[in-house]
């Protein structure tokens, strides 16, 4: 199932009924600007070498196969935007340090091995941001996984096959915390 746009509904009858419903409470005033959805904030990309390294890293974390990967999904820009507008200073420092480490690993003969420390991946914050950025992008949410914004029906226990993709949304919304696991 592909992404169903906001204006598309489960059945024609429902779409019609919904159209008839809009504005059914005639409070006779225009929509208020406080409800308007702002565009994503503009941001300054990282300096070229760091931007290129981040591009390479997100592509390693979630590569393209039959669907596009994190790089094609614009995850690099998402992380740069979050860095500038969302993170606190400690989180920015953590991202900086992880990216330094990643750039150093890329310069070695065996980047894959040098991105790991035993079983541990050495850039966990950037890994988490890549996952959150990818599966909330249009590609990740609707091509890689299943996005159905207006299902129109509920089946509490549908049978799914091995090749069915997981839904990318839940009922409550998804929140993000960059607090390292194990920290208070």
């Amino acid at each position: 199932m592909k992404w169903i746009a906001a204006a598309a509904f489960g059945s024609p009858a429902m779409a019609q009924a919904m159209a008839g419903h809009a504005g059914h409470m005639a409070m006779a005033a225009p929509a208020d600007a406080s409800n308007a959805v702002p565009p994503p904030p503009s941001y300054t990309p990282f300096p070229a070498p760091r931007h290129a390294a981040l591009d390479q890293l997100v592509d390693i974390i979630i590569p393209a196969d039959e669907t596009p990967g994190a790089k094609q999904a614009g995850v690099t820009g998402f992380i740069e935007m979050m860095y500038q507008h969302w993170m606190d200073d400690a989180e920015r420092q953590r991202c900086d340090a992880e990216l330094d480490l990643v750039m150093a690993a890329f310069k070695t003969g065996d980047p894959a091995a040098n991105l790991r420390d035993g079983g541990r991946f050495r850039a966990p914050t950037l890994r988490k941001l890549t996952i959150y950025g990818y599966y909330t992008s249009e590609v990740g949410a609707s091509e890689e996984l299943d996005l159905n914004l207006v299902p129109g029906a509920y089946d509490a226990c549908a049978v799914i096959g091995r090749n069915d993709r997981a839904p990318s949304l839940n009922t409550w919304g998804i929140s993000l915390s960059l607090t390292p696991s194990g920290a208070a």
Binding site: A22, G23, A29, N35
Partner: peptide, 24 residues
């Protein structure tokens, strides 16, 4: 402020990538 049912539910069926911070 006034709220007009429907018209003012501006985020109702938006996907994460249609929101400025993806819903974060």
């Amino acid at each position: 402020r006034n709220v007009v049912a429907g018209t003012d539910y501006t985020t109702e069926h938006l996907a994460p990538f249609q929101l400025p911070y993806r819903g974060f």
